[in-house]
């Protein structure tokens, strides 16, 4: 029982990280048809700058972490918006080229981060509570999992509210379904492109700071690793579906934890098998629109 609870909650925590990356990926793909390989770079730069800011002001405290998170969100959003406005927009409607430039950005960014911060992970300080555990139903759960889950839930709630309650949210939901018809109603859909990049970048930025809490370090490859799983999550959940991304994040992460524990560390493989199975049985994913 206690192992079960531990695996479940740890899986949820990891799923929270996946979701923070996958939510933006899914919205960006759904609305614009862009497969954004640079998303991992948004996360990494936010993690680094968040850590740099946090440790300068108050290292290893809640204030420091809050500042890291704030800086991470701002950096993620800013870098994402710059990417969209300066680069992606020039290739409007050319999806393959758009994916290609994001590949280039991600390669260049990781190399640059290595140049600045080195190739080895840099271990970070955290508020003491986050390094402790809490007992639930006999399982000793690391406290940082709760922080991750709470943050992801807040982000999910925030994005859902935004999508449901605002005009831009309405435009984005409609655009994911049929971009051309949105333009044909007299709406400049490109403005919402910048907006989804901002939202996705902000979520990834927060994800970067939280990832450094979860792993206990920042490194130039933080984003690349999470990105692959976020891609898998996005495809399983259905490209363009926020709910799908949320469900698939939890599903993938929990499955990964269980397989790692019960099937001799085969978590990654099981996830890949799951992806292949989903794509073959239901190519549009759990909640995706029909292709």
């Amino acid at each position: 029982m206690d192992t079960l609870v531990l695996l479940l909650i740890t899986g949820l925590g990891l799923g929270a990280l996946y979701f923070l990356v996958a939510s933006g990926l899914s919205l960006i793909y759904g609305l614009m048809g862009v497969l954004n390989f640079a998303h991992g770079a948004f996360l990494t730069i936010a993690a680094f700058l968040g850590w740099e800011a946090g440790r300068r002001i108050s290292d290893g405290t809640w204030t420091g972490l809050a500042i890291s998170a704030l800086v991470g969100i701002l950096v993620g959003a800013t870098v994402a918006v710059l990417t969209e406005v300066l680069i992606i927009r020039r290739l409007y409607e050319r999806h393959i080229e758009q994916a290609l430039v994001t590949v280039g950005i991600s390669l260049a960014a990781v190399a640059l981060f290595e140049g600045i911060w080195g190739t080895d992970p840099i271990y970070t300080d955290r508020p003491a509570w986050l390094t402790q555990t809490t007992e639930i139903l006999g399982a000793r759960i690391p406290n940082d999992r709760f922080l991750l889950i709470a943050c992801a839930a807040l982000v999910l709630g925030g994005i859902v509210l935004f999508l449901r309650r605002t005009r831009y949210g309405l435009i984005i939901r409609a655009g994911v379904e049929n971009r051309h018809m949105v333009t044909a109603l007299g709406i400049d859909v490109r403005r919402s492109f910048t907006l989804v990049f901002a939202i996705g970048g902000a979520a990834a930025g927060l994800g970067g700071v939280l990832a450094s809490v979860y792993y206990g370090y920042v490194s130039a490859h933080l984003g690349s690793v999470l990105l692959i799983f976020a891609f898998i999550v996005t495809v399983i959940g259905g490209l363009g579906s926020l709910t799908g991304a949320a469900i698939a994040s939890v599903l993938v992460a929990v499955l990964q934890q269980f397989a790692n524990f019960y099937l001799g560390g085969t978590g990654d493989l099981v996830v890949v098998v799951l992806l292949a199975a989903v794509l073959l049985i239901r190519p549009r994913g759990l909640m995706g629109k029909a292709a």
Partner: peptide, 23 residues
């Protein structure tokens, strides 16, 4: 020095420029 000492940075940037300006 930092960007120039990372080959992949230069190659990645070059790649982006090729996609943008040299289809």
């Amino acid at each position: 020095r930092v960007p120039l000492s990372e080959p992949l940075f230069i190659l990645g940037t070059l790649f982006v420029l090729v996609v943008l300006f040299l289809p």
